[in-house]
Amino acid sequence: MRGDTPAHRVAILAVPPVKAFDVAMPQMVLGAAVREGRALYEVRVCTADPGIPQDGGGLTLGFEHGLEALSWADSVVIAGTEAREIDSRVLAAVRGAVEAGKRVAAICTGGFVLAGTGLLDGRAATTYWLHTTEFQISFPRVDLRRDVLFVEDGTLLTSAGAAAGIDLCLHLVRSDFGAAVATEVARAAVVGPFRPGGQPQIVATPLPAARDVSLAATRAWALARLDTPLTLADLAAHSRTSVRTFTRRFRAETGGTPQRWLLDQRLHRARQLLETTDLPLARIARDCGLGTPDSLRRHLVRHVGRTPSAYRALAAEKPRDRPK
Rank of each mutant, 00 (worst) to 15 (best):
L207Y: 12
A180S: 13
D176R: 03
A236V: 04
E253P: 07
I202M: 07
D227Y: 11
C169K: 06
A179C: 13
V190K: 07
R251P: 00
H171I: 01
D167Q: 04
G192P: 07
A210N: 05
A220Y: 09
Q201G: 03
L215E: 13
F177S: 06
S239T: 08
R187P: 01
R195G: 12
A180Q: 11
A182P: 02
D167T: 06
L172P: 10
R240E: 13
H238W: 03
V243S: 08
C169H: 05
T218H: 11
V203E: 04
A210F: 11
P229W: 01
R251Q: 06
D234A: 04
E184V: 09
A224W: 00
L172K: 06
A237G: 14
P229H: 12
F194M: 05
D227F: 13
R211P: 00
A222K: 04
P229S: 09
F250H: 08
D176C: 05
V213E: 08
G198M: 04
V191C: 14
T231Y: 01
V213Y: 02
R219G: 01
E253V: 12
R195W: 00
V243F: 01
V213G: 02
R248A: 05
A217V: 03
A233L: 08
L170D: 09
T247W: 10
R251G: 11
A210Q: 09
V203I: 11
V191F: 10
V190R: 07
A237F: 02
R240K: 15
A220Q: 14
S239H: 10
P206A: 03
L232R: 13
A188T: 15
D167N: 09
P208L: 01
P200V: 02
I202Q: 12
D227K: 11
L168W: 05
P206D: 08
A188L: 14
I202V: 14
A217M: 06
C169W: 13
F177N: 00
P196N: 06
W221D: 08
F177G: 03
R244A: 15
S242G: 15
A210I: 09
A233V: 10
R211G: 03
F194S: 00
A186G: 09
G197A: 14
A216I: 06
V173E: 10
A186R: 05
V203D: 04
A222G: 13
A179L: 00
F194G: 01
D212E: 15
S175Q: 13
P196S: 12
T183L: 10
V181K: 07
P196D: 14
T218S: 13
L223V: 11
P229M: 07
R195S: 11
R211V: 11
R244M: 13
V181N: 03
F194E: 05
